[in-house]
Design a protein around this nucleic acid. Structure first.
Lengths: 209, 209
DNA sequence: TTTTTTTTACCTGATTACAGGTAAAAGAGC
DNA sequence: GCTCTTTTACCTGTAATCAGGTAAAAAAAA
């Protein structure tokens, strides 16, 4: 049996690179290439597909949402995500939305081939560098940081827009004193001296938006 | 004459994609492929090269510095930069350091071919999307933003670390009042209400570090 | 249901930031 | 030389933040 495979990437060069790589694999058949997720969604309704290799950073619709949409209707299709750089949270998000694996584009040809074969066999696969990314920071980066509550995030966002305590209170229909308490709690939670340090911290850790 | 060409990219897939593309061009001969700039610098001393296609985001040494180094010793080599996303300032920097062109990786095969041919003929070339990037934002993004002076950047950096006016004054051996003046000037320059808004602005525009 | 977290709210005092105006010395550019 | 920008510095007053303690609804989790 030959696995009907499609490639989704907004870089023509990358598509041709992957296509060249996959042409070595006998039981993989490339049936189509796409530069956006929209065109893939059209195609998928009328054609049988077994395997999808997709870039995560795509125009219009991103890889995570694309994966989720496809998996809802076609759970049997094996989907492998790719990107140049990667963050732990992004990889986890992709897997939680049904992805069968994640490969960094700096992976070697052998890594690519191994991952694809294992994914077809039903395994969840990661390229080497992805493995180190998702295993290491678990103890320090994500578990150490408590995370903002909904209200705290609202207030932090308004703080980053330069609003004063009074303005935030007016915006959220709260008492001045309530907002003041939230401010203090946020600062204490991360042991920050003032909003300046807090916002630097929040922005660098992508905790706003 | 066949142009001796090397490709530098830390993604094996991209290398093979470009190699596949260039194999169609009769007067281009790919003599070597590299995953980092260091190995290229070694190679270049002992071998004749006419054309280099290089990724800008490389490990250890970045594309801009690599281009500068090569051009100092070998000004006749034609160097074309590539990247996935691009900022205006980065493209300009690359050209100012001797680059002969810049192509976004989402360019079509035809764009790639055209750019390479024109670059060989001595032109400075850009792919379509790069052209729009470097022409459009001139009036709003870059010229509108005055930029921080050295001292202002020092102070802004310490502010982002949560330091108070007095602490900054102590750190930089300045009067409290001097730092206060700088703070006000920075806020006025960008019409920001307070440090919170300022730091959001500076970080989002990569104006710190 | 009980427990924990979140959200709401108040009081006080010390510290700091912000807005206004002013100005001289040093350096860069023409 | 002159001009513009930058860096340095001072004074005053108002407004806002920060740190301390306290506490009761409301919501979420156990």
């Amino acid at each position: 049996m030959r696995y009907k495979t499609v490639i989704v990437d907004d870089h023509p060069i990358v598509i041709s690179g992957i296509a060249g790589l996959l042409s070595d694999l006998e039981n993989i058949e490339i049936v189509q290439k796409f530069e956006s997720g929209i065109s893939l969604l059209d195609y998928i309704e009328d054609h049988k597909i077994d395997l999808i290799l997709m870039d995560i950073f795509l125009p219009i619709i991103n890889g995570v949402d694309l994966c989720k949409t496809i998996k809802q209707k076609h759970p049997k299709i094996v989907i492998i995500g790719m990107s140049s750089q990667s963050e732990r949270s992004l990889v986890m998000q992709f897997i939680q939305n049904g992805g069968n694996g994640y490969i960094l584009k700096n992976a070697s040809f052998d890594e690519f081939k191994n991952c694809i074969y294992k994914a077809i066999d039903g395994e969840i696969v990661f390229s080497e560098e992805v493995k180190t990314i998702i295993s290491q920071p678990l103890s320090e980066d994500l578990e150490r940081i408590p995370g903002l509550s909904r209200r705290e995030r609202d207030i932090a966002l308004l703080l980053s827009q330069g609003k004063s305590t009074q303005e935030i209170a007016d915006d959220l229909f709260l008492s001045f004193l309530t907002v003041q308490t939230h401010r203090r709690n946020i600062l204490q939670k991360y042991k920050m001296k003032n909003v300046a340090e807090l916002i630097t911290f929040l922005l660098k850790n992508n905790m706003l938006n």
